[in-house]
C-alpha cells in the first residue's frame, strides 16, 4: 500500500502568512492539523509548561547582581510548592515567617526604591532577562541620585508580595520584575510592576505595569527608559497606578 502523502491537502492561500503570526494556512490531513504543525504546537506548549515549573537560578542571579555591584537578600512567600502556588494565589502575596524576620531585622530607615526579582509564572524569564534589564536601569537611578535597597530575590511570588517586602523595608517605591504567564509564542516574558508607597492590602489599581519585556518584545533599553520614567513621575506626583497616566509618548514606537 502506498504511504499517504505527509501533507496531502496543503492550503492554496499561502500568501496570507505574511500578514500575521497566527497559525493560519496550516493545511490538513482529513480534518486534522498536519503532523508537523501539530508537533510544533506541542513543542510550544511544552516550552510554556516547562517555564511554569522552572526554578530561579538563585546562585547565578546572586553572582550577577553582586557584580553590578548590589547587595542581595533571598526571600520566599508562604507558598511551599508549585502546586500550592497555582491553587493559592493568596499565599504568594505574603512573606513566610523566616523571610519576614530577615527583612524586619534590617531596620533600614528606608531606601527610595526596592527592586525585587520574582519567579512568578516563569522563572526562566527572570533568569534570562532580569540582570540585563538591571544593567540598563541601575545607572539611571544612580544618575538621578535615587537610593536603592539591597536587591531582593524572591521565590513563589505573586505581584502583591512587593507590598509586603516594600512595607517591611520602608521603601518609597517597589519595582517587582516577575515572570509573566507563559504564552505559546512567549514562554519567557518579564513583567514590571511599580507601586508608590507599597503597603499590604493594595490592589492592582495602585500599580503601573510594563509587560512583554524580552528581546522579541519590549527590548531592555526601552523597558528601562519606561520604568525609569514612571519612577520619576511617581515620586514627583507622589502616586502610582491608574491615576498616574503614562504620557511618555512614542518612545517605544
Amino acid at each position: 500500500m502506498d504511504k499517504p502523502a505527509p501533507n496531502n491537502q496543503p492550503d492554496q492561500w499561502k500568501s496570507l502568512k505574511e500578514y500575521t503570526s497566527a497559525r493560519i494556512v496550516l493545511g490538513r490531513n482529513g480534518t486534522s492539523i498536519p503532523l508537523k504543525e501539530s508537533l510544533a504546537f506541542q513543542m510550544a506548549h511544552a516550552h510554556a509548561r516547562d517555564a511554569v515549573y522552572s526554578h530561579l537560578d538563585i546562585e547565578k542571579l546572586k553572582v550577577e547582581v553582586e557584580a553590578l555591584p548590589q547587595q542581595v537578600i533571598c526571600v520566599s512567600s508562604k507558598v511551599e510548592n508549585r502546586e500550592q502556588y497555582l491553587k493559592r494565589p493568596d499565599l504568594g502575596k505574603f512573606l513566610n515567617d523566616a523571610s519576614a524576620k530577615k527583612l524586619d531585622e534590617i531596620n533600614d530607615s528606608g531606601s527610595e526604591v526596592v527592586i525585587i526579582l520574582a519567579d512568578g509564572l516563569s522563572s526562566s524569564a527572570v533568569n534570562k532577562h532580569a540582570v540585563p534589564l538591571l544593567k540598563e536601569l541601575l545607572p539611571k537611578l544612580q544618575d538621578a541620585h535615587k537610593t536603592v535597597a539591597p536587591i531582593i530575590i524572591s521565590e513563589q511570588s505573586r505581584v502583591a508580595l512587593a507590598d509586603d517586602i516594600g512595607e517591611r523595608l520602608n521603601a518609597g517605591l517597589s519595582l517587582i520584575l516577575i515572570g509573566e504567564r507563559p504564552g505559546l509564542s512567549s514562554p519567557e516574558s518579564l513583567g514590571a510592576y511599580l507601586t508608590y508607597k507599597p503597603k499590604k492590602g493594595l490592589t492592582d489599581e495602585s500599580r503601573n505595569c510594563i509587560s512583554n519585556i524580552r528581546p522579541n518584545g519590549l527590548v531592555y533599553p526601552a523597558a528601562a527608559d519606561k520604568i525609569f520614567y514612571i519612577i520619576q513621575e511617581a515620586f514627583s506626583k507622589k502616586i502610582s497606578g491608574v491615576k498616574l497616566k503614562d504620557n511618555m509618548g512614542n518612545l517605544n514606537a
Binding site: 500575521t20 503570526s21 497566527a22 497559525r23 493560519i24 492539523i33 504543525e37 504564552g183 505559546l184 509564542s185
Partner: peptide, 12 residues
C-alpha cells in the same frame, strides 16, 4: 481560532 492559538489573548 487559527491553530487553536490566540496570539492576542495568549490562551488556547
Amino acid at each position: 481560532v487559527p491553530g487553536a492559538d490566540d496570539i492576542m489573548l495568549n490562551y488556547q
